[in-house]
Every structure is written in C-alpha cells, then in structure tokens.
C-alpha cells in the first residue's frame, strides 16, 4: 500500500466521485483556478471543467444554500467552506435548513449534501481561525459529522459521505493535510458510526478523534514506557457515534480519558463521559476524565496557543494518576 498524504487521500475520493457520478459537482471559494485553500482540489478545474468544479463568490450562506437546492433537485453537490470558522456564516443554512428539510417535509425532500471544511487549531491562526466547533454540528439531529484522523480515514470516510442520503459535515484537520499514511489505491468505504481501535490496550482507554487521535497515540507510547498499556480509540464520526465501541473498550480497561482540541465546557467530550456512565458505570474503576482545550479564545502566539491546547504530557500525567487511583 502506498504512503500518501491526508490531502492526496481526499483528492483520490473526490476524483473518483467526479469520474464515476455525473451528479457530483464541487462548489466553493477558491476551489477552481486556485485549487482550494488547502490545495485539495488543485488541478480539478483543468481536469473536470467549470461545470463540475465551480468557484463561488465569498458567500458562505449561498454556497451551502445553493448546495441544498441542488441536492434537493437530485444532484450530489460537495461544497467546500474553507474552514469551520467560516461555516458560521452559513450556520442557518446548515442547522435550520440542511438538517431539517427531510424531517419537516415528512421524508419527501432529501438533502444529500457533503460540506467539507477544515477545523482545529495549532497553526497559529488566532482566535477566529482556530475553532473546533464539531460539537455544535454533532448536537443537531439530521446532520452526520465526520472527523477523519488519518489518510486512510480521509479517503474511506469521504467515499462514504457521497453514498449518504443525508447532509454530511466533513471536518478535516488543518494540521493533518501533509500527514502521511498507508492508503489502498482501490476504492473502499469506511462505515459511519464505527470507531477504530487505533492501538489495543488493557489499562486505560484514550478516546480521540481527528488530530487528538495522534496525540493520544503518542501519549500511549510514552505510557508504555511507564508500564501502562493504553488503548486508543479513533472515533472517525461523532454522529453517528460508536457508543458500543466506546463502551466495549471501557468495559475492558475500566478507565477512560477523552482528548479533544475543543473547549471543555459544553464540548463533545462531555457527551462521551455521560454515555460511558450511562452504559458502563459498573465497569468503571475511576472517574472518566477529559483532556480538552482551555476555555479561552485561541491566542496567536505559539507559546500561548500550545498552552491552551491539550498536550501529550498532560494526557500522560492524567493517565498515570488515573491508573494509580489519583484523580484531580
């Protein structure tokens, strides 16, 4: 299997869709001649033409809204919103429209729309360009929320997103586009709602998604040196969420820590903690903890930004304390 980047994995899925499904077209700011802010659609305009790859004005609401319209009319649009930060300009279309039209029409209208955007922090982009707002979208019934961690995830999950009859919020991580991993050249699809055991272990479950999976994995490697065998779960999708997978792991390890870039207060980690206590309370040897971003707008300085984000050392410390029966 060749080693390719997260970016290239996304490109392979998009290229496949454009080649194999006439209904698919891409639309967004700077995705055509410019090739996309993260170069995911580079060269696609030349390859597939203006009918399939459309540059739009800087109008997030109509990009999503027109995507909804085209999806209702029977096409399979993929809209790119550059980043999750700009999706806020389209949030009425995403939350009040895309997610609800199927329900409000009693199942008569379908919105098979793929909305791609980059999220996450760590690239020194300041408070307004570093959001991790996936929990907002995961909160909304009617939306599927996808958070790939690896190139393998990126291709397989994006392939599945195009099979969907529902709107999909597909959140890539800004810091992962250049990361590499093994990806089959052939077509494959990864199911939504099925977490991956990224590293098997027995002592504590580290639950991550997107960028935090890698932090959790590195923390697990350090914990191994300390004699602790940590299991790392890669959620892949937040909605649907693999509750069974999480519970199965916690039943095995009896301890869990959720790792997320997101703010702690009201973040997605809280939902996971609640689900674990609902479904695996009797199996727990310790409180379920969260290692989250600090509750501050993301600062620009690298020193300050790193201080506001979860760090491997912090995960290791929490896990060690948890396994020794010490909780904060």
């Amino acid at each position: 299997m060749p080693d390719i980047t997260y970016r290239e994995a996304l490109r392979q899925a998009l290229r496949y869709q454009l080649e194999h499904d006439e209904r698919v077209f891409l639309m967004g700011e700077d995705i055509g001649a410019y090739g996309g802010s993260y170069a995911v659609t580079k060269g696609f305009l030349e390859e597939f033409g203006e009918r399939r790859v459309k540059d739009t004005p800087i109008s997030e609401s109509v990009v999503v809204g027109a995507g909804i319209g085209a999806a209702m009319a029977g096409l399979k649009p993929m809209v790119e919103l550059m980043t999750i930060n700009f999706s806020l300009l389209a949030i009425d279309q995403i939350v009040n429209n895309a997610s609800k039209l199927h329900y409000m029409s009693n199942g008569q209208i379908r919105v098979p729309l793929v909305m791609r955007m980059a999220g996450g922090a760590g690239s020194q982009l300041g408070a307004q360009h570093s959001h991790s707002l996936e929990s907002w979208y995961a909160h909304v019934p009617g939306l599927k929320v996808v958070v790939p961690a690896t190139p393998y995830d990126a291709k397989g999950l994006l392939m599945t997103a195009f099979e969907e009859e529902n709107p999909v919020v597909f959140i890539e991580h800004t810091a992962l586009y250049a990361s590499k991993g093994e990806v089959p050249e052939d077509v494959y699809r990864l199911p939504f709602g099925a977490a991956e055991v990224f590293r098997a272990g027995t002592d504590v479950t580290l639950i991550g998604y997107s960028g935090s999976v890698h932090q959790a994995f590195r923390a697990a490697q350090q914990l191994e040196e300390e004699g602790i065998d940590a299991e790392v779960l890669n959620l892949r999708t937040l909605r649907p969420l693999d509750v069974e997978g999480i519970v199965a792991s916690v039943r095995k390890t009896s301890r869990a820590i959720v790792i997320e870039d997101d703010w702690k207060f009201g973040g997605f980690g809280g939902e996971i903690v609640a689900l674990i206590q609902e479904h695996a309370f009797d199996y727990l040897d310790a409180p379920v903890l969260r290692c989250s971003g600090s509750d501050v707008p993301m600062p620009y300085s690298m020193a300050l930004e790193q201080a506001a984000l979860p760090q491997e050392a912090g995960i290791v410390e929490l896990a060690l304390n948890l396994c020794e029966g010490v909780t904060p």
Binding site: S61, V62, V64, G65, A66, G67, I68, G69, A70, A71, M72, A73, G74, L75, P77, D92, Q93, N96, N97, L101, M104, S105, I109
Partner: peptide, 19 residues
C-alpha cells in the same frame, strides 16, 4: 418547504436553478 427564517430559501432556489 420554506424556512421560517426569512430569505433562507432564496439560496435554495438559486441552487435548484443551478441544478
């Protein structure tokens, strides 16, 4: 069906017309 939020269905019309 329209959105109760005013004007939100104008982009939908543009998208349908685009299709």
């Amino acid at each position: 069906t329209r959105s109760s939020v005013i004007a939100a269905n104008l982009p939908h019309a543009a998208g349908i017309a685009y299709a």
